[in-house]
Nucleic acid binder design. Structure first.
Lengths: 144, 144
DNA sequence: TATTGTTATACTCTATAACTATA
DNA sequence: TATAGTTATAGAGTATAACAATA
């Protein structure tokens, strides 16, 4: 059964291919296809307070500040984010979720999770148990 | 340990997030960052004979024919693909790998796999064993 | 002076519409 | 007429360079 994964290189190859393909399938489930992956990702970052100012968001998303200016402008225009003044530094802006932004994220998570839950249901109980063991390891790998 | 993954929805959420993040990390390892993901993917499709003509490649990559025209033109200019006449239909073209294209793919795979092998080495033997069990299941999930 | 953020401009990737060559 | 592919053109996303406001 594990013929391709006996060696570390074999395991890495199999993981690399299936993780890439699974991620593409998950991305395709996104709710509002008029929002890009970066836009969704910025909403998530603001929602979880991983980043709040335009500079922090650019750094977090690995894009340049002028690109982030445009991403934020679009999200503001759509009423998904709003801007508040920084308490001490007038140069900076603090981004915050609007109720519409929060609702959109929630629906997006619901959709993608529902798609994957359906796929998990098609596995055997033993296979799901294996994935439960593997999930925290994949989590660790992704943060390495 | 599995507090987040007891339910199917919890498992799905954890998998969804870590698979997405791991895929992004893997993509970032690509060799020639002047080649887009689509360009790499077209090379892989030609190499494995998943598709050979511009129309087939457009269909396979889920882009429109004019977009594929440009992707192929770039790959030809860089000497990674070459064009041969179709044996019976003068409208169509058959794309084939050049030695440089084959070499580039090989090096790309080597790099991404090497990155992941390194990450796997940082795990415990028990964790690697769990991933060996999980790998074929993720493979199945990605093809569902 | 250094930092934060924006505006102006250009490049890449993708799309739609219109066209050419062949079936 | 229909199909395979290209050319012309436009829109989205990101980059660099130059600038404004504030620290």
């Amino acid at each position: 059964m594990h013929s391709q994964t006996r060696t570390d290189a074999g395991l890495a190859t199999t993981l690399r291919i299936s993780v890439g393909r699974l991620a593409r399938r998950l991305r395709a489930q996104r709710l509002d296809s008029t929002l890009s992956e970066t836009q969704i990702s910025v909403l998530v970052a603001v929602d979880r307070k991983y980043a709040s100012t335009p500079s922090e968001l650019a750094e977090y998303e690995k894009v340049k500040p002028p690109s982030m200016t445009r991403v934020i402008a679009t999200l503001e225009e759509r009423g998904l984010l709003e801007r508040a003044p920084h308490p001490t530094d007038k140069r900076q802006a603090i981004l915050a979720m609007t109720p519409a932004g929060t609702a959109l994220l929630k629906e997006n998570r619901r959709r993608r999770t529902a798609w994957l839950v359906q796929r998990l249901k098609e596995l055997t109980p033993q296979e799901r148990a294996t994935l439960r063991e593997a999930a925290p390891i994949l989590e660790k790998l992704s943060q390495a």
